[in-house]
Design a protein around this nucleic acid. Structure first.
Length: 837
RNA sequence: GCGAAAGUGGCGGAAUUGGCAGACGCGCCGGACUUAGGAUCCGGUAGCCGAAAGGCUAUGGGGGUUCGAGUCCCCCCUUUCGCACCA
């Protein structure tokens, strides 16, 4: 008996994989590629077991694919720029670069101790100039194409992080990272024109059949396409006009007032022209409200002005309302209280007129009786020439008429905004432009890339942009005129880094371009992508955007970067997500010291399907460890006896028991293979392997103490070459199939079984349906819907034969004698169902 | 409020297309081996009735379709997640 010492095996095989470069790959046109990727990590310095789950999921997939003959790219890297390192520098004085590189080294060690099969020579870190040079390269390309542009705009400012946030980084009016309430601030910013791709990003979702529906829906909602019309309402008594966006132009005869966002530009004019100090104040106080406060209730006030409804010619009052969003549509709406719930509430609150313009449904809607807005489409009433016509056709007609009369036009609006990428931070990619007094914004020439981050010694956390302090770096000659100029001191949002890193892995050493298009053509798209659902919108949408931009630049020739997406569930402990502050983290190194990497890997895969959240359990881990010990003992027990035997041909000379073991082995191969490859049910794959082990134990009873086994107790049974061959086949298959989950143990066992060469070179076992098929099947018999008997039948029995056998059965006959058999159904399974009366 | 997913033993979870509900594991109970067992092996373990054979009841609740429903349809309850004035 050889002892199972997982810690030694971990070390031995990890060294072996590293020294023989087992997982390093090259393009090979003769082989089918498989690109398996887990979302790269922010190097916080320490990963608890909750962080490790998706790497294990990816590794199981990668290793299984490897054995199935694919050329597997399985790389890893670091999302290494970002706020936490800079915040730490402010606190401790440690330079972000120092702490980041240390953190990377530590976390890399953690992943290596888990035995994840990464092609480490492709490792990338976004904070290195070799990488971010190409953030800058892509930025310049986008600038050339008008996809990167500058605009002055109100942005979200986090007073705590001292930086601008993208819309997507604001959650419920608060900073996504620190939770501080965001305030508005006006700054000159860089934007990526993602809205130019809005329709394409939306349509592309249709093709993402390998993504969870949930994520597709979230993206669709985020893009938020809506078709409608822009209609012009002239302001009475002036040459000005207010444009509104509406999806319900069919209700325009019911528009009884116009609402403006407090920030709407025309409000400035009203304020300027107004002598009323109270009016000014109300405007100012409305503008000061954050999103949170505006949600509390619908508030508004009259501007004293009125607008002309271009369809009716009627004058309607103009109000300012807190719930009208300045950043959506035109920042102004026509209010139709009869047919919009929000307008209805507003009208009732301020007793503004309500007028019905559409009748939907059977019961007529009247202003007097309605208690809520009637929002369904229907037949128009009191709508001039359009009266009696029906939506949606009338909408098309009204938009066309508005166009002819020059009072409106069809328009599509998106909830999606252009992506603000400027960050007033140090630890990020410098934006490669200079500001020249004479030439304005001048791009840094490609030949001068990368614009390297200067070393800054002290981090105060005060001021707008830390880079502004590095005066030697800031002051440069203008690339265009040679005169004095200043570098841009903002850095890029780190989501830029992560929007194309998966492409860099295809060719991480390229110094001329982000990557070689030929390499990307071979490896991309990513076949299997694993990561947290928290990236369902931002990272995944930006990556889809970047992929299209790079396509238009000519670097890739596909649209969608990720074919199949798996969003793994979180790991909870004591009902909560693991976090240091909650004090419920489980340290992987503790677990490795106690049980080894394989038990940890196996447990995390077995306890629940990958996309579900799991609750950490020491007892569960212990159970997985026990299972590995069982496997170890089984193989150890038989290794010598069964060495060198060929795969059996189980003919008539095999016993029933032998045939049963072969059947179980092949059935397990079938189940594990489909569970891993088709269904991603890794938990049931493991349970199938456990069943096989149980079967082999009852066959061979491989106890630790060498107690007489059942098989050995039968005289002469071990002389049967068939027995040995059957065991050999089953045990080989077991070790092969367990290897993606428990690679260290499997490598050692494979070696013990006398196989030359590592498992990565071994072939996944193949399933033989002929072997898996039983000669006899047990057929359940239902009588009036209740299970009453089981009968034995030949596996290839026809439906008629099955009914015959069932009806002849003694138990069945106790239910049928003296009664009429009304119906006999033979179902899949097979199964016989009788209706008896 | 809108949208999505889910609800199965003491627990985590199985059940692939409508076909034997509870695989597999944890826990618990019993046995074997033992000076000992928290090691290992074997067996049992949804609930109720029964000595047993067996029967009855069970997949959040209520209806329906079907020879047959955890699975499909309708209504309701609960939980989780996402979105939340997007005109």
């Amino acid at each position: 008996m050889t002892d199972f010492r997982p810690q030694q095996l971990d070390k031995k095989w990890q060294q072996q994989w590293a020294s023989s470069k087992t997982f390093e790959v090259d393009e090979d046109a003769s082989r089918t590629k498989f690109y398996c990727l887990e979302m790269f990590a922010y190097p916080s310095g320490y990963a608890h077991v909750g962080h490790l789950r998706n790497y294990i999921i990816g590794d199981v997939m990668a290793r299984a694919k490897w054995m199935r003959g694919f050329n597997v790219l399985h790389p890893f890297g670091w999302d290494a720029f970002g706020l936490p390192a800079e915040n730490a520098a402010i606190k401790t004085g440690t330079h972000p670069e120092t702490s980041t590189l240390e953190n990377i080294a530590h976390m890399k060690g953690q992943l290596q101790r888990l035995g994840i099969s990464y092609a480490w020579e492709r490792e990338i870190a976004t904070c290195l100039p070799e990488y971010y040079k190409f953030n800058q390269w892509i930025f310049l390309k986008m600038l050339e194409r008008g996809l990167a542009y500058r605009k002055r705009s109100t942005v979200n400012w986090c007073p705590s992080c001292n930086t601008v946030l993208a819309n997507e980084q604001v959650i419920d009016g608060a900073c996504w990272r620190c939770g501080t309430i965001v305030v508005a601030r006006d700054l000159e910013q860089w934007f990526f024109r993602i809205t130019q791709y809005a329709d394409e990003l939306l349509e592309g979702l249709e093709s993402l059949t390998g993504w969870p529906e949930k994520v597709v829906v979230m993206q669709r909602n985020w893009i938020g396409r809506s078709e409608g019309a822009r209609v012009t309402f002239p302001v009475a008594g002036t040459d000005a006009a207010i444009e509104v966006f509406t999806t319900r132009i069919d209700t325009i005869y019911g528009a009884t007032f116009v609402l403006l966002a407090p920030e709407h530009p025309i409000v400035d004019r009203f304020v300027k022209e107004s002598a009323d100090a109270a009016f000014r104040e109300r405007v100012a106080s409305f503008r000061a409200l954050d999103r949170e406060a505006r949600r509390d209730g619908k508030e508004g006030f009259d501007t004293g002005r009125s607008a002309l409804n271009p369809f009716t010619g009627e004058e309607v009052p103009i109000w300012i309302a807190n719930f009208v969003l300045a950043e959506y549509g035109t920042g102004a709406i026509m209010a139709v209280p009869a047919h919009d719930q929000r307008d209805f509430e507003f009208a009732r609150k301020y007793t503004l007129p309500i007028r019905v313009a559409v009748q939907a449904g059977n019961e007529a809607v009247t202003v007097e009786t309605m208690t809520e807005a009637s929002t369904n489409y229907g037949r128009l009433v009191d709508s001039g020439d359009y009266t009696g016509q029906e939506a949606p056709a009338v909408i098309t007609r009204m938009i066309a008429d508005a166009g002819k009369r020059g009072i409106g036009t069809g328009e599509v609006q998106y909830r999606l905004k252009d992506w603000g990428i400027s960050r007033q931070r140090y630890w990020g990619t410098p934006i490669p432009v200079v500001h020249c007094e004479k030439d304005g914004v001048v791009p840094v020439p490609y030949t001068d890339l990368p614009v390297e981050l200067p070393k800054i010694a002290t981090f105060t956390g005060l001021g707008d942009s830390p880079l502004a302090q590095a005066s030697e770096w800031v002051n440069v000659k203008c690339p265009a005129c040679g005169g004095p100029a200043k570098r841009e001191t903002d850095t890029m949002d780190t989501f830029v880094d992560s929007s194309w890193y998966f492409l860099r892995f295809c060719d991480p050493g390229n110094t001329e371009r982000p990557f070689d298009p030929a390499a990307a053509a071979y490896w991309m798209p990513v076949d299997f992508y694993v990561g947290g659902v928290e990236h369902a919108i931002l990272h995944l949408l930006y990556s889809r955007f970047f992929t299209r931009v790079l396509r238009d630049i000519g670097l890739v020739d596909f649209d969608e970067p990720f074919t199949r997406l798996l969003t793994q569930g979180m790991v909870l402990n004591n009902g909560a997500v693991m976090s240091k502050s909650k004090g419920n983290v489980v340290d992987p190194d503790d677990m490795l010291a106690k049980y080894g990497a394989d038990a940890l890997r196996l447990y995390v895969m077995f306890v629940a399907p990958p996309e579900k959240e799991i609750e950490w359990s020491d007892a569960g881990l212990e159970g997985s460890f026990r299972f590995l010990v069982r496997v170890w003992r089984l193989v150890d027990h038989w290794a010598e006896t069964i060495g060198g035997e060929a795969i059996p041909e189980c003919g008539d000379d095999c016993t029933d028991t032998e045939r049963a073991v072969r059947r179980k082995a092949h059935e397990t191969i079938r189940r594990v293979t489909t569970d891993i490859e088709d269904r991603m049910h890794l938990n049931t794959a493991v349970s199938s392997l456990m069943e096989l082990v149980n079967e082999l134990y009852s066959f061979s009873d491989g106890t630790a103490r060498g107690a007489p086994t059942r098989v050995e107790a039968q005289v002469g049974v071990m002389e049967r070459t068939q027995t040995i061959a059957v065991l050999r086949e089953a045990i080989d298959a077991l070790v092969l199939m367990i290897s993606p989950f428990a690679p260290h143990t499997a490598e050692e066992l494979w070696h013990m079984l006398g196989h030359a060469g590592g498992l990565a070179a071994a072939k996944w076992p193949s399933f033989d349906p002929k072997v898996a098929r039983a000669d006899q099947v047990v057929v359940p018999v239902q009588i009036n819907g209740k299970l009453r008997a089981r009968v034995k039948a030949p596996a290839d029995a026809s439906e008629d034969q099955l009914s015959e056998i069932a009806l002849a059965d003694a138990t069945v006959r106790t239910y049928t004698t003296g009664k009429t058999i009304r119906k006999v159904v033979v179902g899949k399974g097979p199964l016989v169902s009788l209706v008896v009366q």
